[in-house]
């Protein structure tokens, strides 16, 4: 997982580098929550460029971070979402609440 924070824009980019399943979400969740509470960003972006697989555990993880970020007054979006991930995000309905900046085919 790679973290980049832009202090000027108060932008936190969380780049995930592994397949997102029930096994992986625990670690991702802990690290993301730590970074979000440390920087208190205005905007958070989940970058899925290096994520080739995601199951419904990923939906729970994204929704959980969305709740935390919203509570702290920030906004969440997702970028570089591959088609198979998009299929799941769309099916769950969260793509209506959390904007997806780019879908990769």
């Amino acid at each position: 997982m790679n973290i980049e924070y832009d202090n000027k824009d108060k932008l936190l980019v969380i780049k995930i580098d592994e397949e997102i399943d029930h096994h992986a979400v625990e670690k991702i969740r802990r690290r993301a929550d730590y970074e979000i509470q440390r920087y208190m960003p205005k905007r958070v972006v989940f970058d899925f460029d290096n994520v080739s697989f995601m199951d419904s555990s990923g939906i729970g993880m994204v929704v959980g971070r969305y709740k935390l970020i919203s509570m702290l007054g920030g906004e969440l979006s997702m970028i570089n979402v591959k088609e198979n991930l998009y299929k799941i995000l769309k099916m769950s309905g969260i793509s209506k609440i959390i904007p997806i900046q780019e879908v990769k085919i």
């Binding site: 979400v25 969740r29 199951d55 419904s56 555990s57 939906i59 729970g60 993880m61 929704v63 959980g64 799941i88 099916m91 769950s92």
Partner: peptide, 14 residues
């Protein structure tokens, strides 16, 4: 409480 989405069976079905 475990942040489960409740989408497991729905995904399997579709």
């Amino acid at each position: 409480n475990l942040e489960r989405s409740g989408m497991g069976f729905t995904i399997m079905e579709s």
